[in-house]
Design a protein around this nucleic acid. Structure first.
Lengths: 110, 110
DNA sequence: GAAGCATACCTAGTACTGCTATGTATAGTA
DNA sequence: TACTATACATAGCAGTACTAGGTATGCTTC
């Protein structure tokens, strides 16, 4: 079952910021990390991810830098900024309000 | 602080279905209920809510019927359908996957 | 060395989506 | 009577997003 587009879109920014507040990493690894922690339920493609990373960078929430790996691969690492951490905290708070509302309503049966 | 538009948009359907799986109710009461359980953090306007209710009805997830209240007010009550309950369960599952992913990532500090 | 696959990043053309502001109507309150 | 709250409605305005396929290069297999 695939997730609705609006949930995928809305959750991309908070998830990316959540990954990056833990440690710097690069695009392809973000995709794999998100697949891993969601048991492949969240299945992002590069074409979805990179435009969001670019928008976050344009908004000053992340910065990027190139690193050449041991095997010669060039990777664009992303680092969360102070503004990104602040935005991340706000988003987590907002998502928890929404999720708690959903859970609270779910407990009210007919 | 206002919620980002994409979170408001993405969460409207699951929240409405969550309210209605508990009991039939009408639009204006849905707005008040959602304000109440989110301590006014989620602040929907009618202009946001009614188009979503109309789309849910067009999609067969809810049905509506008019009731005249004791004070003479005409209210359009909404009732969740079997398809709506099914969609509601799928959405709750998907939102919990995303929220667990967020929480799991939040526990990974730098 | 060649072929195929995985890794890694990129983007534009296509495909749409949503809600703010304001409307009508009517009951309640001052 | 005037104002507010309740109750539902919608269109004009304002955008948003990603699928599909691109380039490039390292790895694995033959």
């Amino acid at each position: 079952m695939t997730f609705p587009k609006d949930l995928v879109a809305a959750s991309a920014t908070p998830i990316i910021l959540a990954v990056l507040q833990g440690r710097d990493t690069y695009g392809y690894a973000i995709i794999r990390k998100v697949q891993q922690i969601s048991d492949h339920r969240i299945d992002w493609k590069e074409g979805m991810l990179y435009p969001v990373l670019h928008r976050l960078e344009a908004a000053g929430l992340v910065e990027s830098y190139w690193v050449v790996a041991e095997n010669g691969r060039r990777r664009k690492y992303y680092h969360i900024t102070a503004a990104g951490r602040s935005e991340y905290r706000a988003l987590i708070d907002q998502w928890s309000v929404v999720y708690r509302a959903l859970c609270s309503l779910s407990e009210e049966s007919p």
